[in-house]
């Protein structure tokens, strides 16, 4: 009896193994096809459609777009041919020029595109820091404390009004 059950199990295991062997290539192909599409999309997001719509290549949705359709096909061929993303992008640059890149490459003059906004913001920050320092120094020599408070009702009223204005009537 036990031997019969063991024999049946073995048959099931054998069938499952055989089934897995048959399905495996399809699964691998499906997975690799998904990975391929992912890769096309990932690289395509670094490229621009040049039909004038200014959209990312794989996001261009213009019907019969004269650029995005053929360009995506070129990209798919490049992705199929090269394992490196950089090489696939190089194929696109060779075909359409650097203008196909959605952002300027960080080399040569195009480096300026990336550096200038950062440099301008840093310059502004330094400028503000310098101005603050200068003003703070000037303020430091201006006597703040110890200055006599004038015993002037008009002055008191002005101070009161300023506080009122600052606090929106909450004081």
């Amino acid at each position: 009896m036990r031997r019969a059950i063991e024999g049946r199990n073995r048959r099931w295991i054998g069938l499952l193994f055989l089934g897995a062997l048959v399905i495996a290539p399809y699964l691998v192909r499906a997975q690799s096809s998904e990975a391929f599409e992912e890769r096309v999309k990932r690289i395509g997001k670094k490229l621009l459609c040049l039909c004038g719509c200014n959209q990312i290549l794989v996001e261009c949705n213009h019907r019969n777009c004269p650029f995005s359709g053929p360009a995506i096909e070129t990209l798919r061929q490049a992705v199929q041919r090269y394992e490196s993303d950089d090489l696939a992008i190089q194929v696109m640059i060779q075909q359409y020029g650097t203008v196909v890149l959605a952002a300027p490459p960080a080399q040569g003059f195009n480096l300026a595109a990336w550096i200038t906004p950062v440099a301008a913001a840093t310059g502004g920050l330094v400028l503000i820091a310098l101005v603050l320092r200068r003003w703070s120094r000037r303020h430091a020599v201006t006597p703040m404390e110890g200055a006599p408070i004038p015993d002037d009702p008009a002055w008191r009223e002005r101070v009161r009004q300023e506080i009122e204005k600052e606090l929106g009537g909450l004081s």
Binding site: L50, T98, L101, P104
Partner: peptide, 8 residues
């Protein structure tokens, strides 16, 4: 010519 798109 270069393009400056959304990634930048």
């Amino acid at each position: 010519k270069v393009s400056v798109g959304p990634p930048f």
